[in-house]
Structure formats: C-alpha cells, structure tokens
C-alpha cells in the first residue's frame, strides 16, 4: 500500500470509508483507504462476504439502492466528492456490468440504444455510429451484425455478457465497474471476456471484482485483497502475488483458506 511514489493518475480516491447495513447493526466496510488509477485494471479479491462487491457499488452510488444502509467517509472522482455529483450523471461516467448478464428484453439494437436514448440522443446516424463502435469495442460485432433486430434474450450467456459490456460502452464512460462478470460463464466465454478487458483498459479504467484469484493474476494491474470488510492489502499485482506483505494475504494466495 505504498502509493506515495506512484506516478499514475488517480481516478477514485477512497478515504476512511465505512458502510453499515440494517441501520447500523452490521458493518460491511471498515475504514477503507485506497486509490484507483487511470487506464489500469484493479482487481478486488477476497473470500465470500468480505465486502468487495459492496465497495464496488459505492463507486457509482448503486449502494444507495439498498435501504437502511449508510456510508461515511469520502470517495472522490477526479477530485470531486461523489456525494456532490448528481448520481444520474455519475452513472453515465461510471458504468457497471453485473454478475448475471441482464440484457433488456428488447432487440440487440435497442439494448445498445437504451443508454443514449435516455440521454436524449435521437439522431439515427449518431445512434448507429454508437452501435457500431460499442459492438466492435465489446468484440461482439461480427457475431451479431446480421441479427441486430433479434431479441437479445436469444444470445448465449457469453454473448449476452458482452452485450451488457457493449451497452455500457455505448455511454462512453470513463470507468467500467465489473462485478464478477465471468462467474456465470463457461471457460471459453470467460477467456473471450478476459481478452476483451485487456483491450478495453487502453481506453477505460476498469475495476473488477473476482472470486477467481488466477483471473486476477492474469488480467489486473493492481490487486486489492479484502477480508471481513477490511482492506488487508493493496499493491501492484506482480508484487502482491509474488511478495504478499500480510500473513493473511499469503494464506489466501497459498490456498490455506478460501
């Protein structure tokens, strides 16, 4: 967790964040301090229930959808406290891909158009440009270019997840949050998405929550290890896996518990 010498640009700065559920009865996050760097892939790993998905949801204020929960501390986005940013606007800049693919029950086209249309974009030319760009960016274009009017529900699991990514890309966000995006997919689809993430990080900042240590090791630049709501260790991925500084990280990496 030695960030002082880090030259990379900071996108999110998390300071002293605690998160409580059930009107304060349960604490899901304890005093989290970390930074997210631009155009890098940051992986959140840790055993079940450690709070990684919860922290992920804080970045686009989706945690506020849960009743009776409260977050304190400060998270800044490009220097601005996200509580001061309009949540709707924040979500256009910070996109999210969920664990279960959730395409809308519309055509593939309409799925991609959904985000821009909500922002008032009506011009067909612009919409079609966005369509092409996002499908290509999600490596889905070739597979669906002839069936754009068909229902998105007819695609395979892996294709649906890539569609959800394309849908997020259509909004041209700065950050993409991914909550265990491949846990519901088969190995081949997983591989495709991992390749995609590698491409995407050139243009976007990506935070990915994953249950799969090896995946984190494969694709991420930074790794954050959580346990029971605490951020145990945060370092560059190579450093983390080769020289873990905390005993708990070591135990986790070597598989003494999971």
């Amino acid at each position: 967790m030695n960030n002082e010498n880090n030259k990379d640009e900071v996108v999110f700065d998390v300071k002293n964040v605690n998160l409580f559920y059930d009107n304060g009865a349960k604490q899901a996050l304890k005093d989290i301090n970390m930074k997210i760097y631009k155009n890098k892939v940051t992986a959140f790993i840790g055993p079940s229930g450690c709070g990684k998905s919860t922290l992920l949801r804080c970045f686009d204020r989706m945690n506020e959808l849960v009743d009776n929960s409260y977050r304190d501390g400060i998270i800044t986005y490009n220097g601005e406290d996200i509580k001061d940013i309009n949540s709707i606007y924040l979500r256009t800049r910070v996109g999210m891909v969920f664990q279960q693919p959730n395409p809308f029950p519309m055509s593939i086209k309409d799925n991609i158009f959904y985000g821009p249309r909500c922002q008032g974009v009506k011009d067909k030319k612009i919409l079609n440009e966005i369509l092409d760009e996002s499908l290509k960016g999600a490596a889905l274009y070739d597979e669906v270019k002839d069936i754009l009017n068909k229902s998105a529900l007819g695609l395979s699991g892996g294709q649906q997840q890539r569609l959800c990514i394309a849908r997020t890309l259509a909004m041209s966000p700065d950050v993409i949050l991914m909550d265990e995006p491949t846990s519901a997919l088969d190995p081949i689809a997983t591989l495709k998405i991992e390749e995609l993430i590698n491409e995407l990080k050139k243009k976007y900042t990506i935070i990915i929550v994953t249950h799969n240590m090896q995946q984190a090791a494969r694709i991420s630049d930074y790794t954050a290890f959580f346990m029971l709501g605490e951020l145990v260790e945060f370092n560059k991925t190579e450093e983390f896996f080769s020289h873990p500084q905390d005993k708990r990280s070591e135990d986790y990496i070597t598989g003494r518990f999971g």
Partner: peptide, 12 residues
C-alpha cells in the same frame, strides 16, 4: 436486475 442495469446506465 433489469432496473439496476437501467439505473447503472444513467437513466433516471
């Protein structure tokens, strides 16, 4: 999840 996806895309 559909509503969540919609909100995550910046819809009101």
């Amino acid at each position: 999840n559909l509503s969540k996806a919609s909100l995550a895309l910046g819809a009101s």
